[in-house]
Design a protein around this nucleic acid. Structure first.
Lengths: 206, 206
DNA sequence: GGGCATCAACCGACCGTTCGGTAGGCATTT
DNA sequence: AAATGCCTACCGAACGGTCGGTTGATGCCC
């Protein structure tokens, strides 16, 4: 990669990260291309030099974080030094971090907003992010089931109980982001620990 | 209330219900006042005769469903013929119905979209809808704890595990509303029953 | 006749998008 | 080494259209 391509990539990345922040704050329709350009210290015309249009930029924002978010989880699942219980516990921690902190984890309400206008974005989010995440987590559960550490449990039921609370926590913190007592209402660490304990309990052999 | 006031109220209600559907489909910024007026078979000017502005109309839409959604839950909590376990089971059913079907239960991503622009809407949603709902559900749990039917359990942890899955299910069905195999991915009845069973299990005395 | 609901017409601002053009780096030709 | 042509990045200005919101008039029902 020469200097020119690198500069171009840097600019694109800078735009994507800036735009992602704004989309998360104000929603898709609530964020204008002019406002994004302004935040990137460039003109609208320059912005349109790097992206074909608003939808194109939005898709780039959504897709941008898939890999990193999945990689952290995959690393835990592949760690041979951990037992299934340890992996599950670590995976829960990693998932909470992703859902609360990383842009891609906080995008659910954004996807909901555009789900009818851009069904392909929702499809991509599901196929390339949600499903791989579920599959990796389920691999850990299956490993525990084979070793006798976990009991049998319905797959979709487990996802419902595992992802439900953490996604809702992420959503709640977006909904009530302006509360100055947000951490009192929704204390991430406490809720995460209690949740992990319950998951291990319902998976424990009878 | 005379005939005139009643007609006016009917018109307001008709507008609110129409606008709510559109806000849920396209988001706040994605729904224009012209489009709402058109769906109501009236002019924008007539729409502005009934509501001061877009924010005013939106607040009316959000507030509109509070009472009905809370009433169904309160009726269960007040039913003297049911045991605490039966009440909890019925409450879970009612909450799933609210979250999946009723507009107010499906509004979470909408609140997230406007949370920074209209913090007061988020506040109202929390104070007048979320908190009363939690309080009523917790009343049922406390009743069971006093009678020995339920063990002690941290309040916020319980909310996390009880509301988490159902809110996420509602959100997921909004995000992936365009999928033609939506009910295969997110089967409400199955997930609800399994969830209720787990809740009763973690509350069961040791 | 007086208050109310509705309307067509209109407003300035902003939307996403496009256009014509400029500045500067790089490679090839002279 | 100078001149040429091309490419990327960027910009000011403007496009047609839509936004939320307003005005004044018209019909209608009590």
């Amino acid at each position: 990669m020469n200097q020119l391509e690198k500069t171009q990539l840097d600019t694109r990345t800078r735009i994507i990260e800036t735009a992602t922040d704004m989309f998360l704050l104000r929603g898709f329709s609530g964020t204008s291309m002019s406002a994004i350009a302004q935040s990137c210290n460039m003109t609208k015309a320059s912005l349109y030099h790097h992206f074909q249009g608003k939808e194109d930029l939005f898709i780039a924002c959504v897709t941008y974080g898939y890999a990193d978010a999945l990689e952290a989880l995959a690393a835990i699942a592949a760690d041979g030094s951990l037992s299934a219980e340890q992996k599950l516990r670590a995976a829960v921690d990693a998932l909470y971090t992703t859902m609360i902190i990383s842009p891609v984890g906080r995008m659910s309400p954004l996807i909901a907003e555009v789900s009818r206008a851009f069904p392909s974005v929702a499809r991509s989010f599901h196929t390339e992010y949600v499903e791989p995440q579920r599959a990796t987590l389920w691999g850990i559960v299956e490993e525990g089931q084979h070793s006798g550490a976990f009991r049998n449990f319905d797959k979709n039921q487990f996802f419902h109980l595992a992802f439900g609370p953490m996604v809702t926590l992420s959503l709640s913190r977006e909904m009530f982001a302006t509360f100055d007592d947000l951490d009192d209402h929704f204390p991430v660490d406490d809720l995460r620990d209690g949740h992990a304990a319950v998951l291990l309990k319902i998976l424990a052999p009878e």
